[in-house]
């Protein structure tokens, strides 16, 4: 059967919690299959075999749809990642992606920033919609990340399993990445 490979490709998306590694080999195989099928389709069109044409065109469009849906699904996951996790790709994610996808992520991120800057220089679309109750929040450090420099507070040291009072908007991204946890 012609569409077995594209079925396998789409099924892969369901097997992992985030995204499976980009399956370059399978996509190439499918695209050669499509080209082959297209050749046969032209032949059966010439011989006026209607029923066969319908079946072949069906298989061709099916493979095409599967691959496009696969790519689109991955792209939309990347957009979600940008909103949840900020402008960097976590290291354990980057080897699941193809070069083009990393490029897509960067460009999407750049577009988002460009839009934010056009609206106002301090706007960040990815922070919360509700006004916060306090300027400062208490956080618990879950991973050792050492010294980092924050825009307003300056240098701050985060040691594992300690609690600190920090400015809310500065650490929001870190909390979403799972490095810190809000406690109050």
């Amino acid at each position: 059967m012609y569409t077995e490979k594209s079925k396998k490709l789409v099924r892969e998306l369901k097997t992992s919690k985030w995204l499976p590694p980009y399956n370059n080999i399978l996509i190439n195989e499918i695209s050669t299959e499509i080209t082959e099928l297209h050749g046969k389709l032209l032949q059966s069109l010439a011989s006026q075999n209607e029923a066969l044409t319908v079946l072949q065109a069906g298989c061709l469009n099916r493979s095409k749809r599967s691959v496009l849906a696969y790519l689109n699904f991955r792209a939309s996951k990347l957009e979600t990642l940008r909103v949840e996790n900020g402008p960097s790709i976590p290291p354990h994610y980057s080897h699941q992606l193809s070069g083009d996808e990393i490029d897509y992520f960067r460009k999407y991120s750049a577009l988002l920033q460009e839009y934010s800057q056009k609206v106002s220089s301090h706007l960040d679309l990815t922070t919360d919609l509700m006004p916060p109750k306090d300027l400062f929040i208490e956080v618990r450090v879950k991973e050792d990340i050492g010294d980092i420099v924050l825009p307003v507070s300056g240098q701050v040291t985060f040691k594992k399993n300690t609690s600190q009072l920090v400015r809310r908007e500065e650490v929001a991204a870190l909390i979403r990445q799972g490095v810190l946890q809000q406690t109050n």
């Binding site: 996790n85 919360d128 509700m130 916060p132 990445q177 809000q182």
Partner: peptide, 9 residues
């Protein structure tokens, strides 16, 4: 107003 770790992460 509690910030939570993102789902996918």
């Amino acid at each position: 107003d509690i910030i939570r770790t993102g789902q996918s992460v």
